[in-house]
Simulated assay, not measured.
Amino acid sequence: MLKRVLFACFSLLLMSSQYGFAAPKQVLKVVTSDINFPYNFVKDQRVQGLSVDVAQELAARLGMRLEIEVLPWTRALHTAQTQASVMLFTVAKTAAREKNYYWIGPVTRSEEWLYKLKRRTEIKIGTLDDARDYLVGDEANNASIPMFTRLGIKVDTAPSMQSNCRKLKMGRVDLIPFDPDGVEEFAKSCELGMNDIEKTVQVPRDSALYFAFGKSTPPDLISRVNAAFASMVKDKSLQKISKMWKEDAQKK
């Protein structure tokens, strides 16, 4: 009986080798938000962006299959923090967040500026202090909110940046923060053009953006991801991906 079982197992292994059967790849699960141009966004019913391309290359180097779930930003942060082996992007490191995640990166860098509608000529912004006279619309749990609070700038939060854009368009908020590299595509999400909006002042914050895993993630996976990421930095794959997306955004 034992001989027959061993023979059957050997036969299955032989067939797998002969016909190219292989065990399914492990999944690298990612959670992210829907509008964060040019880092991660949904277009043509698929998730695209600089961070997506970096994650695809990371997964390939790990021998894994990338699986991305788009969630409201607050839920994405919570999911990655509380579930093991779930990667989050694209995220800024803050004092409040730092202890809750393992950090991979920096993956890229991002400026943030306050934008207003051009037709709102009554809004006068020469310095960041002037923003105290107005209402800033921001995505819930965005990294810039604590800084606005410290500066005494009033913030009205929304579940997504698309909701923020609609609020700006309707005059329900006066200013919104966004990255100049992606603001044109962002404006399109609520049917605004570059002629409809105006850049005012830069938001002073750490420009580094990261991937992150919750602390319940096995250290072995973190080590493997860090090693794969280091190899991308070393062979300049990371730089090439970033340059492609940044230059494309700046041409628009």
Score class of each variant (00 low, 15 high):
G137W: 01
H78V: 06
P204F: 09
K169M: 07
S189A: 14
E111V: 07
V54E: 00
L50S: 12
G182L: 02
Q162D: 06
A80R: 02
P24D: 05
G137T: 08
A143C: 07
D181H: 14
D235M: 08
G137L: 03
H78K: 14
D235C: 06
V5T: 11
D174C: 06
N142P: 03
C190L: 08
D34T: 12
M161C: 07
A8L: 14
N226A: 12
Q81T: 09
Q250A: 11
A84F: 07
K93C: 04
A23M: 10
V91D: 02
Q48P: 05
E185A: 11
K167H: 11
V70K: 03
D206Q: 11
T121D: 13
E111F: 12
D156Q: 12
P24K: 09
L6T: 08
K93Q: 11
L50K: 08
P180M: 13
W103E: 01
V52M: 02
A59P: 01
Q48R: 15
L209M: 14
A140K: 13
F186R: 02
K124Q: 14
R172P: 03
T127G: 03
A230Y: 09
N195R: 13
W73H: 06
P106R: 07
P159H: 07
F148G: 00
M170I: 11
R46Y: 09
I241E: 00
C9I: 15
P219L: 12
R205W: 06
F178H: 13
L192W: 05
F41G: 00
L209P: 00
R205Y: 06
E111N: 15
D34I: 08
S216H: 12
N164M: 12
L117G: 01
G137Y: 04
Q56H: 10
K240T: 14
A227S: 13
L50Y: 11
V30G: 02
A59E: 00
R224A: 12
K124C: 04
T200L: 08
M170P: 04
M161N: 14
Y19T: 06
A76V: 06
Y101F: 15
G182E: 01
K252M: 09
I125W: 07
R46E: 14
F41N: 01
K99A: 13
P146W: 05
N226K: 15
N141K: 14
D181T: 10
V52N: 00
M87R: 04
P218K: 05
F211Q: 00
A95N: 10
R132I: 04
M170C: 05
Q56K: 14
E198L: 10
A158D: 05
L168A: 04
R109N: 10
A59I: 03
A208N: 15
T217M: 10
Q81I: 05
Y19I: 11
L50Q: 11
K29Q: 15
I176C: 02
G171N: 09
S11Q: 09
Y115A: 00
L71I: 04
D206F: 06
R166M: 10
E184M: 10
G193I: 07
K246G: 01
T74E: 15
V54P: 00
V201I: 13
A60S: 13
R46P: 03
R46F: 08
T94K: 02
D130F: 02
A143E: 05
Q162S: 08
N40W: 08
Y134F: 12
E184Y: 13
L128W: 05
R75A: 08
E98W: 09
M161P: 07
K43N: 10
L28Y: 04
Y102S: 03
L175R: 00
